[in-house]
Design a protein around this nucleic acid. Structure first.
Lengths: 216, 216
DNA sequence: TATTTGTATATTGTATACAAAATGCAAAAG
DNA sequence: CTTTTGCATTTTGTATACAATATACAAATA
């Protein structure tokens, strides 16, 4: 018999705060005053702090001792750092999926992009971004490696990067995604890894160009 | 002027608990009763819980809602999972160090193993393990990527694996370490990555052999 | 006017109190 | 003898209280 898990308050608080941050209801750099937030959410500071600590671990929030918690504000340099991490994690994910997942699951990955295949005209960027995110999450999940999954949570901040409109045009990345999936279907994990590596590299180059422009 | 950071209690509590776990004073699977621990350490449950949450993020502790916190107990499968993660992280670290660190820092890596070079007879396994750990930590530090560093903390559990005596003989890995460093000195990051990948693969194979024996 | 000092207020960090749930165990039922 | 039920005890999860520190702002000083 499976135990029912009586979850604590911190989890829903965490979820609320997370969406508030991702949707910019809580703005980058903003100070998170505990009592204020707790009152807003109708809870006490104890579970609120737990939720904030979780967010700190995912790098969405920063704690400065005795000063408070702040919504994190990413520099281009930090975003590049995160991209390097993402590269290492997602390449490994792709490899594990190729080796461990069955064809049905890989087909499901393919299905995600189906809505964008046989259409004429431009792709709805917002819809595409959601699917892109789903793709990366599903990949990590299908790798069947819980530790890898936990690590990948840290690079969830990239959702923020993307919502800044800093991503490449869907027309460009769609094909890359499909080619990665194709290699996985063929069981060619080396090719799949290489393609993923390249896919991320191309996105990272965009950031590096931005950095160069800033230092000019 | 640099601000002095008035740190909170949770940090020293975290450190105490961590060493207690690593030194098996708190045993795998053991339940961590909050009031008991708090009394032992002379603090209240609030900062104790914060420390426990930190340890949970590093996978040293597991929380079961409404039941308590437990010292984690790793199956061989999970250890293998962690090795995969370590591979991805350390290969990236090696690459970034090669590209970013200066020769002086890479020399320092080499220096770590100096005590084991010109000696006759067997290497002191315990001393070597400490240096091995230092090597991996320094590597991550020299990568100058804070996110990568944070991620690598999750695989610190491997210290536990190692303390189980599950590591390969120093004579075998010493050469591998030196060859990785050599490639970095030459600025050949591809070779360095490959060597690191292989180095970890060989250790992982030990675990996979153990797994096979268990299922027999 | 610009800078420093002093004081009131706000906020964090820690301890404690209290309710809800889990655990252990003895008595009752099968 | 084994299983179930009920109750006392323990332990967790949350709220709150209180002390230490940080912040803001007005008055004092240069």
């Amino acid at each position: 018999m499976k135990q029912i898990e009586h979850s604590s308050l911190s989890k829903p608080i965490y979820n609320s705060l997370k969406t508030m941050i991702l949707e910019k209801e809580l703005k980058p750099g903003e100070k998170l005053v505990q009592e204020k937030l707790a009152a807003q959410l109708g809870v006490s500071r104890t579970p609120l702090m737990q939720a904030l600590q979780m967010l700190e671990n995912e790098l969405l929030v920063e704690s400065v001792p005795r000063r408070g918690m702040f919504v994190r504000n990413f520099s281009v340099d930090e975003m590049i750092d995160i991209y390097y991490c993402r590269e290492s994690i997602e390449c490994m994910a792709v490899r594990l999926v190729t080796l461990r997942a069955d064809q049905k699951d890989i087909k499901a990955l393919h299905q995600l992009f189906q809505p964008f295949l046989d259409i004429e005209g431009a792709i709805d960027a917002e819809k595409y971004q959601k699917v892109d995110e789903k793709f990366h999450n599903m990949l990590v999940k299908l790798s069947q490696n819980p530790v890898l999954k936990k690590m990948s949570k840290m690079s969830q901040i990239l959702t923020l990067v993307h919502s800044l409109g800093l991503l490449r045009p869907p027309e460009e990345t769609l094909m890359e995604h499909l080619q990665i999936i194709e290699a996985m279907e063929n069981g060619n994990f080396q090719q799949a890894e290489l393609r993923m590596k390249n896919h991320i590299k191309l996105s990272m180059e965009l950031l590096q160009k931005i950095r160069k422009e800033k230092t000019k």
